[in-house]
Design a protein around this nucleic acid. Structure first.
Lengths: 359, 359
DNA sequence: TAGGACTCTGAATCGGGGC
DNA sequence: CGCCCCGATTCAGAGTCCT
């Protein structure tokens, strides 16, 4: 059967290129297909400047039927290429994601989750006519309904999330700053995805050495993160310009060392809530005594959010580590308050705080 | 034509009951259709206790085709019942929402947003096999693609959100505690929606006095919130038990008083006041010099309400655009008068004029 | 150099009424 | 239906320049 070209970008139409690859040859697929935006006119900001919207040819379809037919064709090949334990991720917005999801179910993929990428910094709705479009949706699915042995690194993701089960809503900034690839001072690709998003996806649903296919490779975020995390990639892209920037980008990306690959922690988490903020808000009184889960250690809270324990003062993490004689400690889960005899972890109070500040 | 039965619950099949209602008779629809959950077996918690899932007969469909056909049928009636300015909300999870969204687009509804209801307290994934399913998805749509005059209280929602545009991700707790209706100590309805969710939806997309239809009425959250917010409701439900619960619930719900029901309206809805009227009324003298906010540009007022700037004359908007070299300009906020050294925008004078004409 | 003022930008189905 | 004009409308983050 056909050769599987690892760590390279195949130039051409994604369906044709996928057809040339052998059955059951990839461990994970990440697909960022055209969203089929139907933009009628130019959009101006309140200051009269023009929004640089997506006007690329690759996002033009005549109608829903044409888009559906395209979607079914590439999904058919994607399913054929997946190994039995493989999973697929597809990203989109309300313009296309319902059609993609329907096509996936019809094709026999088994949906595992829909994941919401919440943007910290979305583009506002300039006209005040709708809600700020502040998220995109990912669908995560196994090859078939009876396939239960898909790759999912449950514990790694729990560790990335302060020892809480990772939820289906992920807060990640859009791709800006140094990470955003530029060409002649302008954005090189209209829809470059943030590396943190691919980082989390690859950590969740693949293992080092796995083969990752991205049939809509674009600026190559999937390839760069695959290399960084010690996975192999196959990219498919038909635009020479995009291929060139992706090649250069991946060439300058470093693979993490073996040790880091075992313990990688996400840099970007849910909005940070300092412990002092709980004190400031009155959720925790100064002078309150904190306990570990078995009441073997105690410490008291000061007004600035530090703890005192015997003659030591420091953060909830530092004091937690100190009393255990451990090199490090997650103070949020280590320390508890006594609520009518029950021990409640600080982490629960933080959750309440986050909820209150958003509601 | 048929009678529209306000503030009542129609017993029977939702499609048959909708058929009996006249065209263009409701202002907003909220629909919480069966989710078509595909639970194979009973789910047990780690402590071996059984999760009380949805196993009602109303959630049983033989396959996707049967579910799609049901979905298309009720959406057809829903679209017929909507007034031209009306919008529809449909809630679901990944089991059904993609099929619903596709059917809505195929039917000609125009999607305005998808909204993510983020749960503060979702049920964990007990087996550690997937991400915590921590959200549900709502689709908000106008009746047709060319319909731009749908009801959306942009300013009211902005006010509810600390003066920031409301985003597409809403953090709301699931329905628990006193709010959760009980029957013989057990939850009375498997999928009772939180009142906060309906509150926000009704505040966003309806006005006092509007008619709200809920074709899957269940425990009546829509009816209760409609009554509380001074809207009318029509509920459709086929289960006598649910109807009884909902009736009692709504009977004990109080309408907010008129003052509380007031909400911030937008400038678009305010009566139009031409600039010339301010001159005519003497709020601005002819010959007055106008300044932009940084005093970089000036213009003088003429008797007919036009401005002069160098050799140009025109409306406050035209001259504002001209001096900036911009394609357009809002003269009301661009131009100011000098009141004892302070710059006051024309917009403020206009507000005074409107206030005076009301008194 | 630290901080403030100003500018720029991001997958966006983004207006209404009179003539 | 088309044209023209009125006039309503933005948040977070990064980058630049000046004090």
């Amino acid at each position: 059967m056909a050769h599987v070209p690892l760590d390279s970008i195949l130039k051409g139409d994604c369906i044709e290129q996928m057809r040339a690859l052998p059955d059951a040859s990839v461990d994970m697929i990440f697909a960022d297909p055209p969203y089929n935006l139907q933009l009628k006119d130019n959009l101006q900001r309140p200051d009269q400047s023009l929004v640089a919207g997506v006007d690329d040819q690759w996002d033009k379809f005549d109608n829903f039927a044409a888009y559906d037919s395209f979607t079914r064709a590439w999904l058919f090949e994607a399913q054929r290429l997946l190994k039995e334990t493989g999973t697929i991720w597809v990203i989109g917005t309300y313009h296309n994601i319902f059609r993609v999801g329907t096509a996936m179910q019809d094709r026999g993929f088994w949906l595992l989750n829909d994941i919401i990428w919440r943007k910290t910094n979305p583009m506002p709705n300039f006209r005040g006519t709708r809600f700020t479009n502040a998220h995109e949706t990912l669908i995560w699915a196994a090859k078939t309904a009876d396939q239960r042995k898909y790759t999912f690194n449950y514990n790694a993701l729990k560790a990335m999330n302060d020892d809480l089960q990772m939820r289906s809503d992920w807060l990640i900034p859009i791709c800006t700053g140094k990470e955003r690839l530029k060409k002649n001072g302008k954005k090189a690709h209209a829809t470059q995805k943030p590396e943190a998003l691919l980082y989390r996806i690859l950590m969740a649903a693949s293992r080092p050495g796995d083969v990752i296919l991205d049939p809509f490779f674009g600026s190559g975020t999937t390839g760069a993160m695959a290399k960084k995390l010690g996975r192999h990639f196959i990219g498919i892209e038909r635009d020479d310009g995009y291929i060139a920037i992706a090649r250069e980008r991946i060439a300058t990306t470093q693979k993490l060392d073996e040790e880091a690959l075992g313990y990688s922690i996400s840099k970007r988490q849910a909005p940070r809530v300092p412990f002092g903020q709980l004190v400031e808000a009155g959720l925790i009184q100064t002078g309150t005594t904190l306990y570990d889960s078995r009441r073997r250690h105690t410490a008291r809270v000061r007004a600035d959010g530090t703890l005192v324990c015997r003659d030591m003062t420091g953060s909830i993490h530092q004091i937690g580590a100190h009393v255990q004689g451990a090199p490090a400690c997650n103070g949020w889960t280590f320390w508890h308050i006594d609520k009518r005899g029950d021990l409640v972890p600080l982490d629960r109070l933080r959750e309440e705080m986050r909820a209150a500040s958003h509601a």
